[in-house]
Amino acid sequence: MEILKTYKLYIGGQFPRTESGRSYAVVSPSGQHLANACQGSKKDVRNAVQAARKAQGSWAGKSAFNRSQIIYRIAEMLEARKGQFLEELQALGSDLKSATQEVESSIDRCVYYAGWADKFQTLLGSVNPVASSHFNFSVPEAMGVVGVVACQQTALLGFISQVLPALIGGNTVVVIANQKSPLCAITLAEVLATSDVPGGVVNILTGEVSEMLPTLSAHMDVNALSIAPIEAKLQQKAQEEAIDNLKRVRIFAEPLYAESAQGLPYISDFQEIKTTWHPVEQIAGGAGGY
């Protein structure tokens, strides 16, 4: 007799069961019971946001080069666990070819964003030639804690496509995984837990989007939302809840698994621009400017 795995939540680098004590069955398209997953609750959202907030300062404080290496390490770990992801994707209904493609694209996307981690600042920032005797420059800075509703169409690639651009910019995330197919997300959590990503940087919740999203979007300590295509009513409700603390809300009209769904704009969506002024002393006899 096969032992069924119970997938737990991933919060603050730990794998707790949901506070609610509930779980739900993850089934294959053919109706086969694959595993049990935690049905996350309000309190799990609260705990995840708390963990994300706690981790944010030191994550943003790491050097960009270091974040890049950590993301690249994820790619290496994914590669090593490729077989497990392929199995899960196939169990969830993909054929081998599309499952292989999804895993390989996911790995590629990790490598892609690992490379961006110490470069987007150069492109998003600027030195601004102000008319007064001041040095003036703008740099991108993490927004803070980003709440993510992951792609509900794909189990792995969409997740990675949404989480990584926020992550490399120094944000920490609380992700509501694909409701029907959360297995890859939790397996990915196991990858993260054994890689160099500090606990709390990525937090993953499974369960019903409609139950957890209102708490996440109303949470006053969440700075931004990244919402993959979901039911319009849910999405609007989230936008309304987000107003209270003026969360930055990015709604994706299309799922993010397309090849083109990567790039600088996905990073800049979760960056603030900070501009700093400082006087430039005029040295006698000299002339200069920026």
Partner: peptide, 22 residues
């Protein structure tokens, strides 16, 4: 969104202006 170091309330068309949070 704007940090004025050893100065304050400076504005320039070339300098981005805007806030964080609320």
């Amino acid at each position: 969104g704007v940090i004025w170091a050893n100065t304050y309330n400076k504005f320039d068309p070339a300098s981005p202006f805007g806030g964080y949070k609320e």
